[in-house]
Every structure is written in C-alpha cells, then in structure tokens.
Amino acid sequence: MFKSTAVRRVVPRFVDEGRTHIQLRELPRSAVLTDLRRLCIRNKLLGVTDIAIDYHRFLPTGRAYLALAHTKHLQKNLQALDKASVGSLPIKAVSAPPPRSGHGLDKTRTERKVFSGNGPHGGISSRLKHVVIWGFPGKISEEAVENYLRDFRLDNIDNKTGAVKVELTANTFSLYSRYLVRPTSIAEAHRLVRKLHMTYYEPEHWAKRYQLRARVVY
C-alpha cells in the first residue's frame, strides 16, 4: 500500500518535469485576456510571460495557455490555481507541453493558403486587431463582405484582401460562412464588433435569415 501511494505522488512531478506551460480548462467562452490577467494577479502567479486563448476556427475552445519563464514556477502556480475561478465559474489548471502553434495559414491540396483559425491566438500574430464574423450566407464572396463592411476601416490580411474566408474542414458543409477581417486599429476592431454583433445581414432582402455574430480575436 505504501509503495503504490509513493508512486502516485511521484508520477505527477515526473510528468511535469521540464514543463513551462499551464493549460487552463473549462473557461467561460466569453473570457477575454483581461479576465485571464486578473486571474494571474488575483492568484499571485509567478513568472507568467504570455497568455494565449485557444481557438477553433477563431472561436474560443474554453481553454487557454500560460507560458512561464522557468520550470521552477510550475508547481507553485498549479497549487495557486487549485481552486481558481473565472467569472464565478471554477476552472481546472494542468501542466502541459508547449501548445502547437496552430498556424493560421494552412495549405490545401492545391497549395492554396487558407486560414484555419486553430490553436493559441488563432494562429495569428497581430493581436487584438482581427475580428471574426460568422453567419454570412454560405456562398457570399470576399468582395461582397468587404462591400458590406465599407463603413469600417480595414487593412489587408497578409497581403490578401480585407476580408478572408475561414474555410471549413474537409468533408463538411454549412449554409453559413465565416470571415476574418483586420480593422486598422484596436479601437476600430471593437467598434466593428459593437455595431455588427447580433445584427442581420441585409434584412430588407433576407429578413432574419442571416444573423451575424462578431468577436475580437485575442
């Protein structure tokens, strides 16, 4: 009995050895970077160098990663997060290997680069200046989306147009489409979300068939 108890106590540290990342789980999907920074301050975490929300097609998965400056901070931070919460909801914290970069740009079979929006930060480098919008008609073009957003100031995305379609995974189909846009500033990104979120696309033509949702990618 004493031998098995000792093994259970040793295994976690063996698994954690050398790790400098903590994965947060069961986060509210509405959690943003500000909430996670407050979590770090409230629980007096040590050596946190980066906070990355995890995404699938630019929508939060309910997970996030904390990068630490040194392995010596791992166990103390895990203990501090043992009963932590975000938005009054309890969360879980576990040690993790470095997360996959989830490159925002993937290649299709034809070597055409497309945005996947998977992984920490959705795989994009310019934080807080990208907005994902979903609920457009499935076959709407990039040009039509840009025209619809003509009242907002947009930059090109990686030398592409101002609105880039987030492609579906293989062998899937949807009546709706999702687009990534890059406003010229953080303030403009938030203005776009405030104006567009929960509105309807061309209601004079489609009535309430296409309700749009928009979120800033952190």
Rank of each mutant, 00 (worst) to 15 (best):
L74V: 02
V131Y: 06
K3S: 10
L105K: 06
P183I: 01
K83R: 15
V164R: 05
P183C: 03
Q211V: 05
A64M: 06
A93Q: 00
G117K: 05
H73K: 02
T199K: 14
L128C: 09
L196H: 03
R8I: 10
D106I: 15
N77R: 01
V164Y: 05
K208C: 08
L154I: 03
R127F: 13
E188M: 05
S30L: 12
T61D: 10
A69M: 08
I91E: 00
L168M: 07
H21E: 03
K76Y: 08
V166H: 00
I41V: 13
H56N: 14
A31K: 01
K165N: 11
S88R: 12
I140H: 07
N43S: 09
N118K: 09
V48C: 03
D155N: 15
A31D: 01
A52Y: 05
S30M: 12
S116I: 12
R13N: 08
I53E: 00
A170E: 15
R153S: 14
R178N: 08
F173D: 12
R100F: 10
L59E: 12
E202S: 12
G102D: 08
E142N: 14
G122P: 02
L149W: 06
R38A: 15
L192I: 04
P60D: 06
R42H: 13
A69F: 08
L89H: 15
K76V: 09
R63H: 10
L74M: 03
I22F: 04
H21I: 00
R153G: 06
T61S: 13
L33T: 07
R209S: 13
A214F: 06
Q211F: 01
Y179M: 02
T184Y: 07
L81C: 03
H21K: 04
G18D: 04
